[in-house]
Nucleic acid binder design. Structure first.
Length: 325
DNA sequence: AGTTGTGTTGAAGA
DNA sequence: ATCTTCAACACAAC
């Protein structure tokens, strides 16, 4: 499930792999995901635009394009983006990764969860950009390889088993005015998310359960079901505690752990509990260090007490009844 | 083989 | 207002 760390990993990968590229074509088998526009209109409006950069707010991804348009993506539950790069030895066909694998490498793209490709963005390395890069490296000018506008050398495949993900083309200068974005709370790893702010949120939501507050995107943007359980375990606080009953010292501890857990998860490239994969199709690393999420019935790693699963707000939350008060 | 659990978000209902 | 329930959708696990 893509939460803030998974989305951050994807955004970083995209900036590394496709920034500066030009969209040459688009395909979809599930046009319902494209909001407000027909498939034909959407395609017409994105083809020819250059990818200027990628950013995110909470779990929302923004791919800024040339001429003031932005692709607004939300991965929802099972969405993930796979970037397939053309084998440089074969200029006209994308090779499946296993064809160019070394003997011991794993073919992550072949993983079942990567097979539900609903949309494809075809990309071409910008001719000018390519020219500049190659001259910098002192290589031969290959600009003639990129003059054909139908050529592509990369594809972003949007895999999404459950088809909840959405794609919207919006005006770049209106991104922050989108109702979904305007309604978001403070991003959990932004400098604006200070302890003072966190404290105010808890005061405002005095009667609400902390387990629900942490996941509410309208209050704090970025935390989902996996990290709320992990954060609360690390901070030693029960998900069912009411905000007003949480002491100042506990609030400080909790605030610190929100940052710590999310940062650690970003470093480990997210959690691949089920469907999430990075842009290479590879799983993240945080599932290996999960303490309580989906560990119901197992022993707590700190005290050997059995980890419990409860439902709050129609969602499972996991905790250690001894370590968390 | 039918039922259930899975989790993000927004909308509808209370 | 604010809370709860449902719907979007597919599939693995029971």
């Amino acid at each position: 499930m893509p939460e803030l760390p998974e989305v951050q990993t994807v955004v970083d990968d995209l900036n590394k792999k496709i920034k500066g590229d030009i969209i040459t074509d688009f395909w979809s088998e599930w046009p319902k995901a494209i909001k407000e526009k027909t498939l034909a209109t959407f395609k017409k409006e994105i083809v020819g635009r250059k990818i200027l950069g990628v950013r995110r707010i909470g779990k929302n991804i923004f791919v800024d394009l040339s001429d003031k348009k932005t692709l607004y993506l939300h991965l929802k539950m099972t969405g993930h983006l796979l970037i397939k790069i053309q084998n440089p030895n074969d200029k006209f066909q994308i090779k499946s990764k296993n064809q160019i694998l070394k003997s011991k490498e794993v073919d992550y793209f072949a993983d079942r969860v990567n097979q539900y490709v609903r949309h494809k963005f075809f990309l071409r390395t910008d001719a000018k950009q390519q020219n500049i890069d190659e001259s910098t490296n002192g290589k031969v000018d290959t600009v003639k390889n990129f003059v054909d506008s139908n050529r592509y050398d990369k594809v972003i495949e949007f895999s999404d088993v459950r088809k909840f993900a959405k794609i919207v083309l919006v005006d770049t200068d209106k991104v922050l005015e989108l109702p979904e974005i305007k309604a978001l709370g403070v991003d959990a790893v932004s400098p604006e998310f200070t302890f003072k702010k966190f404290n105010e949120i808890l005061d405002k939501k005095a009667k609400s359960l902390i387990g629900i507050i942490l996941m509410d995107q309208h209050l704090i943007a970025g935390i989902g079901n996996i990290y709320r359980s992990e954060i609360l375990f690390a901070a030693g606080i029960l998900p069912t505690r009411q905000a007003e009953k949480i002491s100042l010292a506990e609030r400080k501890k909790l605030f610190i752990w929100i940052g710590n857990i999310l940062q650690k998860a970003i470093v480990l490239r997210g959690t691949s509990d089920s469907d999430y994969r990075d842009t290479s199709g590879a799983p993240g690393g945080f599932q290996k260090v999960l303490q309580v999420y989906r560990k119901a019935g197992e022993k707590c790693q700190k005290c050997d007490t059995i980890v419990v699963r409860e439902t709050i707000g129609q969602r499972s939350v996991f905790f250690c009844p001894k370590c968390q008060k």
